[in-house]
Amino acid sequence: MDTHLTDETLNEYLDGVLAAKQQAELTAHLARCPACAARLEALRALFARLEALPAASLNRDLAPAVLQALSPTQPGAPPGVHPPRRLLPRLVLGVQLVGAMLLSILTWPFIEPQLNRWGNLPLPAPGLGDLAARAQAAWAAWLDPLHTLEMALTTALAWPREIVLPFDSRWLDLAGLAPSPRDAALALAGAAALWLAGHALLLRHPLVRLLRRRP
């Protein structure tokens, strides 16, 4: 090897990444080439200066702050090795979905004739109407005790019926809206279903989560 060694070769030589045979050849070259040997020594001196850099002292213990940041009570705390199970959000999501389904079933008897009126749209699977009717019957049966309680309160306390049952349709009559009870129930149930489904699904969509993420 007659030519001088490249900088890259000298670096690799000092880093000890060359094959044993090549390393030996370079050692032989360096022994007979003062120019390359001088460049190698300069590089070795640089290595030594880096190696000799003293460590800086850390003036405080980081452990308390780190553990505090990792505390599960901290908002946005990292999940750690065992990510905490997020049961509550899943439970809320389940309740909301069930609620939305129930409301949809309850409102179906009102929606079905409307759809028929609007153009004989094909109806969903047979039996859904029956299911909705049964659900509505159950709902009405569940409301009966409430009506009984309302009457008892109205009688016993001599309160106006509007106070005991503030959402009575007569309030709407007073406001001049005068919707039929069926339309009012439909609007209320539809809005509730939309809100429940929207809150449960839309706000949990990854895109929405991304938008809500802190910068």
């Binding site: 460590a55 002292s57 850390l58 213990d61 980081l62 452990a63 780190v66 553990l67 990792l70 505390s71 750690g80």
Partner: peptide
């Protein structure tokens, strides 16, 4: 999670 404290103290410097 408390086991992380000694690791922090060991390697923080």
């Amino acid at each position: 999670p408390e086991a992380f404290g000694p690791l922090v103290q060991r390697y923080q410097a």
